[in-house]
Structure formats: C-alpha cells, structure tokens
Amino acid sequence: MSMDDIREKIIAYLQMNHPSNMDTRAIPLDESLLELGIIDSYGVVELVDFLEQSWNITIADNEITKERMGSINKMAQLVLEKKNVD
C-alpha cells in the first residue's frame, strides 16, 4: 500500500460524503479540510471513523490534531505510519 493508494481512497471518500463547491480533484493536498470548509465540525468525527475503519487502525486522541490530520497528505502519512508499524 502506497501513499498514493491511501490518498486516492481518502479523496474518493470525500467525494462521496463531503461534496463541496471545490472540485474534489482540485483540493489542495496540504491544506486543512476544515479551514477550506470542505467538512464542518462534525465532519471530523466522520473522518476519524472513516480512517479507523477503512484501514483498521486506531487513532489516538493526541493525534486528532491539525499537525497529524490537517490535510489529505498528513492523513495519508498518518495511515501509512500506522500500517507500517503493523
């Protein structure tokens, strides 16, 4: 599993569940989905659920931060790290 695969899956999830006026293909990969308005505050809860269930990982409370989840790339990185540890 590569960064690209994970990214693709995250983007597909966003297209399905959090449509926005921004073309999902054009979402900057390094910007916060919350700040871009693509997800609302409750969207964070849905997003954590999605990541945990899709890759069978556990995200710790101190990882639900802008630093670890604040963009598509950061989330992909987080998933990759966790899968590699397994």
Partner: peptide, 20 residues
C-alpha cells in the same frame, strides 16, 4: 451539547473550523 465538542478527543481539531 454537541458530541464533537463534548468529546475531548475531537476538541482540538474542531477549532480549525472557526479559524478562517
């Protein structure tokens, strides 16, 4: 009263919603 704010797990990230 909103679960995403009540649950400290999500609270930090939630604030990015207001940042803009």
């Amino acid at each position: 009263y909103l679960p995403q704010f009540r649950n400290p797990r999500y609270a930090n990230m939630m604030l990015d919603f207001y940042r803009p």
